[in-house]
Design a protein around this nucleic acid. Structure first.
Length: 492
RNA sequence: AGAGGGGUGGCAGAGUCUGGUCCUAUGCAGCCGGCUGCAAACCGGCCUACCCGAGUUCAAAUCUCGGCCCCUCUUCCA
C-alpha cells in the first residue's frame, strides 16, 4: 500500500514518489516571529510533525526543515514591547515558538533556519535571477519579473492578467503589478509599520531605527518576504525537494512566488508536492468583545494539556478546515480519555496476568490486526489522522470488551494491543501512551490510595454517604474514582 | 469579479478521487438495558443524515448537468 497525498500543484491526490526512493526532503513554511503562536500555527506544526513521523515509519530517511521569518516589518512594529530591537523581539518569539513546540510534544526538525542568518544565500539567489534576466533593479530594490516566468500562476491557478486586472499597487517601480520584491532598498519606513503598530510599542520612528539592514550589490537593504524560503530550502535541503508544506493562506502569493523565483533560477522543479494545511477557524464570538478570537498555544497547553490538544488538532484531516470551539475541544478530550483509559486498562491487565498464560482471545487479536491495518490505510490515504485515531478507538473497544469479559486474559493479545497503542498512537500521533506523564504521582498517588482505602472501610461498614463524600472530594481535586471488581482504582 | 474549498444525523466529522462491501463510520449528546450500594468507567441495544432538481447506471452520499446556500484567498497571515 502506497502513500497518496493531495498536491496543490495538480489539485489531485496522487501517489507519493520521492525523488530518491529512500529519502524525503521536507520543508515547512514556519511563521513570522512577531506574535505569540496560536492554535492555528499549532495545527500546522502537529500535522507536519505527524507527516514526518509517518514518512519515517515508512522507512524514508526524512530531512525536515522548518524556518523562522525573523526579519519582517511586523516584528519592528513590536519593538519596545518584547525587546528593544527587531533582532531581540524576534529572538523573544523564536524562544516562545521553541517552547510551545516542545510543550506539544513535537519531534524535532533537523534544522530551524532563520532569515537573518541566511542573507548571503538570499543575495546569491537574487543575483542569479538578475543575471538571468528574471529580475531587475530599481532604485536599490530588486523585483522579480513575472512575465519572464512562463508558468507564473500555476500553483494558485491564476494568470498574470488576472492579477493585473485587480489593479495591484505598482509603487511606480515595478514593471508589472504582479512583480514582487526580492530585495528592498533601505530600512523600514515608519509608514510601513503603521498598521501593525501596537499601542505599547515604541514610537515608530524609534522602532525603525532598530530594523536590520544588510549590504548588497544594490546597496543597503532588506530581503523580500518570499525569497527567504527559496534560499533556505535550497541551502538546507536541495534546489529540488519532495514536499513543501504550509498553511492554505500561503498559496498565493507566497508559495506562488517561491515557485516562480526558484524555478526561474534553477530551471528545476522546486518542490514536487505542495501540501496545504487548511485553516483553523474559531467560532464567531461577536458578543464577547473582551476576548480575542484566538487562543495562544501556551494558554491552550496550560488549559488542556498536549494530548487533548494533539487529539483535537488531529481529529480533522489536514485537508479539511477545522473549527475551534468548546464543543470540538471537549469532544477531543473525550476521545483522548477513552483512548488513554483503554490503554491503561490493557497495561494493567497485562501486569495482572501470567506472561505464559495460554489463553487466546481471537476477537482481541483480530481487533489488533484490524486496528493496525486500518491505521496504516488511513495514514497512507493522505495522512488521514482522523481515521487513524478512529482505528485506535476501535481497538479500545476491543480491549474493553476483552478485559470486561468473563474469560481469562490473553496476555499475548493484550501485549500486542499495548504495543499498538504505543507504536501508532505514541510514536506516530505523538500522544503520550506509555510515557510517564505524571512523575509527581508517587507521593500524591500514595495519598490517593490512602484516601481510597479509608473509603473502602466506610463502604464495607455501609457508610455510603461518607464514602460518596470522599469520592466527590477526590473528584473535585481532579481524581476520578473507578470501582472495579478488583477494588477501587483512579485516574487523574 | 477571478480562483479555490464546501453543504452528510441534535453536534463534530470520516467516507466522494477509485459507484455496489454504506438500509454507512468514529466521538459527543439523547433513550433503553447490563454492571454498581449509588455513581463513574465499561459493555450491549436504540436513535437521527447524505442541500434541491434532473440525468447516467442493474446500482449514486459517491459520476454528469442545472439551481440554491456557505466559506477562503486575491500581495499581513500556518
Amino acid at each position: 500500500m502506497t502513500l497518496r497525498v493531495t498536491n496543490t500543484l495538480t489539485g489531485e491526490k496522487e501517489p507519493f514518489e520521492p525523488r530518491d526512493p529512500d529519502s524525503v526532503l521536507l520543508y515547512y513554511c514556519g511563521l513570522t516571529t512577531s506574535d505569540p503562536p496560536h492554535l492555528g500555527h499549532a495545527r500546522g506544526w502537529v500535522h507536519v510533525d505527524v507527516m514526518a513521523r509517518w514518512l519515517d515509519h515508512l522507512g524514508y530517511d526524512v530531512h525536515h526543515v522548518e524556518n523562522f521569518t525573523d526579519v519582517n516589518e511586523k516584528i519592528v512594529a513590536r519593538v519596545g514591547e518584547d525587546g528593544d530591537s527587531e533582532a531581540s523581539v524576534a529572538r523573544h518569539y523564536v524562544g516562545q515558538v521553541i517552547e510551545d513546540m516542545r510543550s506539544l510534544n513535537l519531534g524535532r526538525a533537523e534544522v530551524y533556519p532563520r532569515v537573518s542568518e541566511h542573507v548571503p544565500e538570499i543575495i546569491d539567489l537574487v543575483e542569479r535571477l538578475v543575471e538571468q534576466g528574471h529580475a531587475y533593479e530599481q532604485n536599490g530594490s530588486v523585483y522579480f519579473d513575472v512575465t519572464s516566468f512562463e508558468d507564473y500562476g500555476k500553483l494558485s491557478n491564476q494568470s498574470v492578467d488576472d492579477i493585473e486586472s485587480q489593479g495591484a499597487d505598482t509603487e511606480g517601480e515595478k514593471h508589472h503589478p504582479a512583480d514582487f520584491a526580492l530585495w528592498k532598498a533601505g530600512g523600514v519606513d515608519p509608514e510601513d509599520i503603521a498598521e501593525h503598530q501596537h499601542p505599547e510599542a515604541a514610537p515608530a520612528e524609534e522602532a525603525c531605527q532598530t530594523a536590520q539592514t544588510w549590504d548588497s550589490p544594490w546597496g543597503e537593504g532588506r530581503p523580500g518576504w518570499h525569497i527567504e524560503c527559496s534560499a533556505m530550502s535550497m541551502t538546507h535541503l536541495d534546489e529540488s525537494i519532495d514536499i513543501h508544506v504550509g498553511g492554505q493562506d500561503l498559496v498565493f502569493p507566497h508559495h506562488e512566488n517561491e515557485v516562480a523565483q526558484s524555478e526561474a533560477a534553477t530551471g528545476k522543479q522546486f518542490a514536487k508536492y505542495w501540501l496545504h494545511v487548511r485553516l483553523l477557524e474559531t467560532e464567531e464570538e461577536k458578543m464577547s468583545s473582551s476576548l480575542g478570537n484566538y487562543f495562544t498555544v501556551a494558554d491552550a497547553v496550560a488549559e488542556f494539556g498536549p494530548d487533548v490538544l494533539r487529539t483535537f488538532l488531529l481529529s480533522t484531516a489536514y485537508t479539511s478546515r477545522a473549527t475551534y470551539s468548546n464543543e470540538t475541544v471537549s469532544e477531543a478530550e473525550e476521545r483522548w480519555d477513552r483512548l488513554s483509559r483503554g490503554y491503561e486498562r490493557a497495561v494493567a491487565a497485562c501486569d495482572d496476568v501470567d506472561a505464559y498464560a495460554k489463553v487466546t482471545d481471537k476477537a482481541l487479536r483480530d481487533a489488533v490486526d484490524a486496528a493496525r491495518d486500518d491505521f496504516e490505510a488511513a495514514m497512507n490515504d493522505d495522512f488521514n489522522t482522523r481515521e487513524a485515531t478512529t482505528a485506535l478507538l476501535d481497538l479500545t473497544a476491543a480491549v474493553n470488551t476483552h478485559v470486561d469479559g468473563p474469560d481469562e486474559y490473553d496476555y499475548q493479545g493484550l501485549r500486542r494491543a499495548v504495543e499498538t497503542f504505543e507504536e501508532l498512537g505514541g510514536d506516530i500521533l505523538g500522544l503520550s501512551f506509555g510515557d510517564d506523564d505524571s512523575g509527581d504521582v508517587s507521593l500524591a498517588g500514595d495519598v490517593v490510595d490512602l484516601v481510597l482505602s479509608v473509603r473502602e472501610q466506610e463502604r464495607e461498614a455501609g457508610n455510603y454517604e461518607r464514602a460518596d463524600e470522599l469520592r466527590d472530594e477526590l473528584e473535585a481535586l481532579g481524581v476520578e474514582v473507578q470501582d472495579t471488581d478488583d477494588g477501587p482504582t483512579y485516574r487523574l
